[in-house]
Simulated scan of single mutants.
Amino acid sequence: MQLIPRTPSTKGPAQMFTGDVYFDVIARGEAPSRLRVNLVRFAPGARTAWHKHSLGQTVHVTDGVGFIQSRGGEVITMQPGDTVYTPPKEWHWHGASGDSFMSHLAMWEDDDATWGDHVTDEEYGAGAES
């Protein structure tokens, strides 16, 4: 057994996020484990850029209201207790609603994420209309 000390919160880099986003590393498995878990906190209106994970990603909302969307799909509203799985290599984004902070656990199995363009205000706004 090993106690892993808490690490400081990290501000999400501007090339990957719009708005204020902070994350805490909860688990970073060492080989042969590929487990990754981050607690991610989004300010109102903050969101990820479009991205995909080679082995998929699961997000579990712990607080607030947020949106998630796969490219070409409907914007889904997420609330505390909701869990959303995004399959391998599926482009998607997620973030807070415009009037609420949102926190979620982000879980994936590797570091092989591909980051794309920022989500436009129009794409993001589709969530507010649903």
Rank of each mutant, 00 (worst) to 15 (best):
G116A: 12
R36M: 03
M78L: 15
D111T: 10
G72A: 11
S103F: 01
V61I: 15
I76H: 04
A43E: 08
A43K: 03
D63Q: 06
F42W: 00
G95Q: 11
Q57G: 10
E90N: 10
A96M: 11
M107Y: 01
V119T: 12
D112T: 12
R47N: 10
K89I: 07
P32I: 07
Q79E: 05
A113F: 02
R28Q: 05
V40G: 02
A113G: 06
V65I: 15
R36A: 02
G66E: 02
E109F: 00
L55W: 04
H118V: 07
A31Q: 07
T120D: 06
T83R: 03
T86D: 06
Q79F: 02
G116P: 10
M107C: 09
R41E: 07
E74H: 10
R47M: 12
L55A: 12
V40D: 01
R28K: 06
D111V: 08
T62S: 05
V75P: 15
H118A: 12
G45H: 01
T62H: 01
H104E: 02
T62C: 11
T58F: 02
T86C: 13
R28G: 08
M102C: 15
D99G: 06
H60R: 05
I76C: 09
H94G: 09
A106V: 10
G98Y: 00
I68L: 14
L35S: 03
S54C: 08
W115M: 09
D110W: 03
T77D: 00
L39M: 04
Q57V: 12
M78S: 13
H60C: 12
A46S: 15
A96W: 03
F67D: 08
G45F: 02
Q69L: 08
P88L: 07
T114Q: 06
S54Q: 07
A46L: 04
D82N: 04
M102P: 01
T77F: 01
E90T: 14
T114R: 01
F101V: 13
W108K: 06
A96T: 12
L105P: 05
Y85T: 14
A49K: 03
T48F: 09
R36Q: 03
D112R: 11
A113C: 07
G81A: 05
W108H: 14
S103C: 08
A31K: 06
S100L: 05
G56D: 04
V40Y: 00
V84H: 02
M78E: 07
F67A: 13
V119K: 04
S54W: 03
F101Q: 11
S103Q: 04
M107G: 04
V84M: 11
T86R: 04
G95V: 11
L105R: 03
S70R: 15
D111K: 00
I76G: 03
H53Y: 09
R41V: 09
P32H: 00
S70V: 14
D99A: 11
E74C: 09
R41M: 04
F101H: 05
V61Y: 00
V84R: 03
K52H: 09
M102H: 01
S33G: 09
D99I: 07
W108P: 05
D63I: 08
R36G: 04
V75H: 10
